[in-house]
């Protein structure tokens, strides 16, 4: 970790927290989305697996330190004692998988459409499949619901996260034209 890596990790963690504070943007359908999980996808897509996961870990550490850094001002150890802990811990793993997948899917020299699709795919894999997978796993064990029913609860959030993954792909593509950064 160079000092520059430390800077990227710290400021991306701050971005993830800030995106939970900035009022949600109402989408065309009128469904407002909070942008915090978008920040996690972006951390993986832009910084890469290691630094992306570290940025998510910093946010998780801030939650544990009793700071209200999650969307809606949630924070503190109570979050870890809650049924949504799987999703929160899933952020770190999800950012890592997103970053790793981005290194594989985002091929230098491919067409713009292909690159954006690859980035969105990476965000879906890490930010949606992994995060929801761990979230459902924890919720199932925690609530006594079992996997199938916990999965049904989680499905309500899938459409919003799909939209966020596509937005994350588009954002990353445009950001990388303005600011090239090697993923690691």
């Amino acid at each position: 970790m160079t000092t520059r890596d430390l800077g990227y990790v710290a400021l991306f963690a701050a971005l993830i927290v800030a995106l939970g504070i900035v009022p949600a943007i109402p989408l065309a359908a009128g469904v407002p989305i909070t942008l915090q999980s978008l920040g996690v996808m972006l951390a993986g897509l832009i910084l890469g697996p290691k630094r992306g996961a570290l940025a998510a870990l910093v946010v998780i550490a801030l939650v544990a330190l009793g700071l209200p850094v999650l969307a809606g001002g949630r924070g503190g150890l109570g979050v870890f004692a809650g049924p949504t802990t799987g999703y929160l811990v899933g952020w770190a793993v999800g950012a890592f998988v997103t970053g790793f997948a981005a290194m594989v899917f985002d091929v230098e020299g491919a067409s713009s459409a292909k690159r954006i699709a690859g980035l969105a795919g990476a965000a879906i894999l890490g930010g949606l499949v992994v995060v929801h997978g761990l979230g459902i796993l924890w919720l199932a064990l925690y609530s006594g619901l079992g996997f199938a029913k916990a999965g049904m609860v989680s499905i309500a959030f899938v459409p919003g996260d799909l939209i966020k993954a596509v937005i994350a792909g588009l954002v990353t593509f445009q950001v990388r034209r303005a600011y090239a950064l090697e993923r690691k």
Binding site: L15, I25, P26, Q174
Partner: peptide, 22 residues
């Protein structure tokens, strides 16, 4: 109203600032 119009410049500023901080 467009998330892209907000997030793209925001992320670029964050990256530039991270470098300055480092």
């Amino acid at each position: 109203g467009s998330p892209l119009a907000l997030v793209v410049p925001l992320v670029v500023r964050v990256l530039v600032r991270a470098e300055e901080v480092a």
